[in-house]
Amino acid sequence: MTLLCRTAENLYWMGRHLERAESVTRLVREHTALITDLPISSGVGWDCLLAIPGETELFLQRYDVADEANVMTYLLADHANASSLVSSMSWARENLRTTRATMPRETWRILNELSRYTTESAAQGVSRGGRHEFCERVVGGCQRLSGFLAGSMGRDPAWRFYQLGVQTERADMTSRVLDVRAGALVSLRHAHDGAFADSQWVSLLRSLDGLQLYRRLTRSLVEGDRVVGFVLGEALFPRSIGSCLQTVADLLEDLPHTAGSEQARAAARTARQRLGELPAAGWTPEMIHDEADRIQLSLAALDLVVNAVYFHLEGPLATAPGAISA
């Protein structure tokens, strides 16, 4: 089994872009459902959807108000926004285009269809009436693709790099959702004006596709500290940061142990370990923010090491006589 460095990098990014497309769409879908339920007096607006992916500043360079139409356009349909849904899809498609030979043939067909649908129907997603259906189809399409790959791809390095991208992006997004949404909700609890906090915690879990599992595992009400613990570390929840990091550590363990790769494995282990040592209750907004920050920094560091070890081994590393395997 041979895998080109360039192909490995493209697979990794395809995984990241697809995961980003799915999670942004799910966020949009759940936030729309939440806002439809909440009275205007709740003060919940659309701007937090910009804060989660860290896009507020870029948004304000090109739009004046963060109203529904602008935020939806920016997140779903704006080709000039490099992390919008349509951009993520077309990046994923470009990444797949150059890695098609390593993927099951049907992959291209599914992604091509999905990417065409997304681009052609993004306007439907911007309008509130058509949004739910649009989001369902996009999330469904992403899941069809990931389900197809899970069922048909060999568990070879190509799979591992694709999964590495998915899991890294997933951990990143979960940490951002936690930071922005949970941070705000925890402060509501302390101010005794959390009349609608319950439905917002529910919405947070929904946007991570974790509500049902949370209820079955905890057999309790949706309650702030428990949700934070669940999202951070629940080993059985596939979108918890702990699960993602555990998977990343396992994937790295199974990739070739080449020069410098121990650094990547060590970084993943350390980040995972820390999550096991967090408090079970008493979360303040500052604590959540600090933790999310720490997680994002370790993910960024991990990304850099993987880049250097597997994607861009230039010069001496690539040509050192000891490294030649033929």
């Binding site: 041979t2 895998l3 080109l4 460095c5 360039r6 490995a8 390095p157 790099f161 990739l255 070739p256 080449t258 597997y310 081994l313 690539a318 040509t319 490294a323 030649i324 395997s325 033929a326």
Partner: peptide, 13 residues
């Protein structure tokens, strides 16, 4: 005078 491919496991002939 030998051609190699850059792979994640190092150069391959």
């Amino acid at each position: 005078d030998v051609v190699f491919l850059r792979t994640i496991e190092g150069p391959q002939r």
